[in-house]
Computed example of a mutant assay.
Amino acid sequence: MNTPTILLLPGWQNSGPGHWQTAWERLHGDQRVEQHDWARPLRGDWSARLEEVVADIPGPVVLAAHSLGCILTAWWAAHTRHAHKVRGALLVAPGDVERPALAPQLAGWAPIARQRLPFPAVLVGSRDDPYCSLERAQALASDWGARFVDAGACGHINAESGLGAWPEGRALLESLTDKD
Rank of each mutant, 00 (worst) to 15 (best):
E135A: 15
P118T: 01
A93C: 10
P130H: 05
A48Q: 15
A64E: 00
W144P: 10
G108Q: 01
R87G: 08
D150Y: 14
G164S: 07
W144I: 06
H79Q: 15
E52V: 07
R136H: 15
L140Q: 05
C154L: 08
A78H: 08
R49N: 14
L68I: 00
R99Y: 09
W76Q: 06
R170G: 03
A78I: 00
E174C: 00
L163Y: 03
L123H: 14
S142W: 05
P167G: 01
A159R: 06
V86R: 08
L72A: 15
A107K: 04
A101K: 02
L63H: 07
P94K: 13
L172K: 06
V122I: 15
I57P: 00
Y131T: 11
D129Q: 06
A171F: 11
A153V: 05
A159P: 05
A65V: 09
L134C: 10
E52G: 01
A151C: 13
G152F: 10
R116N: 10
S67M: 03
A121N: 07
A103H: 02
Q105C: 11
A141Y: 14
E160C: 02
L90P: 14
E168K: 11
S126N: 15
G155D: 01
E52F: 08
G59K: 00
D56H: 12
G164Y: 03
V92Q: 06
E174M: 08
A165M: 07
D129H: 00
A151P: 11
V92N: 05
A74W: 12
L173V: 04
P111T: 05
A139Y: 08
